[in-house]
């Protein structure tokens, strides 16, 4: 008779009696112990914070050239956006509008933007979801440079940052905008800001979580009124200080 492919049983029924089986060597539930140890270690890691895991992943990813880094998940950068596709930067037609409660509103073209004096800095980027990228090099324009250009009125208390990504908007107080490490960044890590990272200009405020660092800037509006930004409307803090907001710290 042909050796038909045997099918294993898939039934339920009473298990056999055990009387006919020989002595078994001692067995220990090592498997269960390994399972539980893994779970405990993992959950412990959540509460011990990123320090421990950054020992593991950061040395690996920091050792790699940044082009490879873009291919590796958990490397540091993740690109978030709220509307597809990413905005496109057209140097010929792009304008940075600076308007609102100012004496002299402007619409700067790309040549004018690149001609403005700038500064460089190296900062850490923190995302509210928990990941961090160290040593990001930025080059860009300080708030005072723009304010000297447009001369805000005494009634101006806030600056609203509008993104080319339609619904995305956020705001800083004037005091926050003029912090020493805040800038309108033109370059990232030695080159123009890439499309995914917010070309051509993004706000950089290292002491606040990434969602305040508006990408694909299209305009700055000086205003007297506070208005919650895109993520604040969705429950995130207005003053998004790293380690001191959004439930952290």
């Amino acid at each position: 008779m042909a050796d038909a492919e045997p099918t294993p049983p898939d039934t339920s029924g009473p298990p056999p009696g055990q009387g006919d089986l020989p002595e078994r060597p001692p067995e220990f539930r090592i498997g269960r112990a390994a399972f539980l140890a893994t779970v405990v270690a993992g959950v412990g890691g959540i509460f011990l914070g990123p320090r421990l895991s950054q020992w593991i992943t950061n040395p690996i990813t920091n050792a790699l050239p940044s082009s490879l880094g873009d291919l590796i998940p958990g490397n540091g950068w993740r690109i978030y956006n709220v509307q597809d596709p990413f905005p496109t930067f057209h140097p010929a037609t792009y304008r940075l509008v600076v308007q609102g409660l100012v004496e002299r509103p402007v619409a700067l073209d790309w040549a004018q933007i690149t001609a403005l004096p700038g500064e460089s800095q190296t900062s850490t980027f923190h995302c509210v979801t928990g990941w961090t990228v160290d040593g990001v090099r930025w080059e860009g324009i300080r708030a005072q440079t723009l304010m000297d250009l447009v001369r805000p009125l005494p009634s101006a208390k806030y600056v609203t940052f509008q993104s080319l990504e339609g619904p995305y908007v956020d705001q800083l107080s004037l005091t926050q905008f003029t912090l020493p490490d805040v800038m309108i960044a033109r370059q990232m890590d030695g080159g123009p800001i890439s499309r995914a990272h917010g070309a051509p200009l993004r706000l950089v405020i290292p002491d606040m979580y990434g969602y305040k660092n508006v990408k694909w800037l299209s305009s700055l509006t000086f205003t007297a009124d506070a208005a919650p930004g895109y993520w604040e409307v969705r429950g995130y803090d207005v003053d998004a200080w790293v380690g001191r907001s959004n439930g952290y710290g």
Binding site: G45, I46, L48, P50, Q54, T57, G130, W131, G247, Y248
Partner: peptide, 8 residues
């Protein structure tokens, strides 16, 4: 929200 969650 815990800082360690996404890393784990």
């Amino acid at each position: 929200r815990f800082a360690g969650t996404i890393n784990v």
